[in-house]
């Protein structure tokens, strides 16, 4: 087996530079690569473009990079929970491209699977379609959307092995599998890292070929954004 392990998050993020485009998994704060984000904050890389469904909250997730003005551009589908984000966007400090969630996922998948572009009905007739090539299929209009082009993907899985095979948990899966192999280098952080051979091959969600670097993350906070309970 090819060993994909790196000793720590510093090694995992080696090569990260100002001006790069990053993909970051997660939906809200669920399944975000907490360790990689902390390292990007520490490295203080600037003028980066982040492809991520959301932008975190003010003091966690990608909100940490926003606070330090490290992000030049965000490509997201929903950014509603972050006041600092809204302030930077409305003041023009931050460039924001809002795109439909399914289009975001499919643009990741396209990059992962070597499909340069695809047609989708989402956004036709709206601002999202402005300036884009459109075409009719089966009597319905569609927009041409392109695969993402990023230097690094940062994903978070529940379990992984030294060969880079990944298993996700619950709805923390979300965009993480779609971003694996969708950038030049995919960095996977996992809660549990086991030797190759310990995971059941039938249960693996993402084969190790899509992952270049894997490490066991530390001190996961796994914050809950909207703690909602029912009464007994």
């Amino acid at each position: 087996m090819i060993n994909k392990t790196v000793v720590n998050v510093q090694q995992a993020c080696k090569g990260v530079q100002d001006g790069m485009t990053f993909m970051l998994g997660g939906f809200g704060l669920c399944g975000i690569p907490e360790n990689a984000i902390a390292e990007l904050v520490r490295l203080d890389v600037k003028k980066v473009t982040c492809i991520s469904n959301n932008a975190g909250v003010d003091d966690f997730g990608l909100g940490l990079l926003l606070q330090k003005r490290q992000i030049k551009k965000m490509i997201s589908s929903y950014v509603g929970e972050n006041a600092e984000f809204e302030r930077q966007m409305l003041s023009g400090e931050l460039d924001v491209e809002l795109i439909p969630q399914g289009t975001l996922a499919q643009r990741c998948l396209a990059a992962q699977s070597g499909v340069p572009a695809f047609y989708t009905p989402a956004g036709y007739g709206t601002e999202v379609g402005e300036g884009k090539e459109s075409r009719e299929f089966n009597g319905k209009m569609h927009l041409l959307e392109h695969a993402f082009n990023a230097q690094f993907s940062f994903v978070k899985a529940w379990k992984g092995d030294t060969a880079g095979n990944l298993i996700f948990k619950g709805t923390a899966r979300n965009f993480n599998p779609n971003m694996c192999g969708a950038a030049k280098i995919t960095v996977a952080e996992v809660e549990q890292l086991v030797p190759a051979g310990e995971l059941d091959p039938n249960q693996i969600h993402i084969p190790g070929i899509f992952v270049q670097r894997i490490f066991q993350g530390k001190q996961y906070q796994k914050r809950i954004e909207q703690r909602t309970v029912r009464q007994l």
């Binding site: 589908s77 989402a122 036709y124 999202v128």
Partner: peptide, 16 residues
């Protein structure tokens, strides 16, 4: 100019 939260999955949902 006031509120920009984003479309989330709504555009995909209503288009299909």
């Amino acid at each position: 100019g006031k509120m920009v939260k984003g479309m989330g999955g709504a555009m995909d949902l209503v288009a299909s």
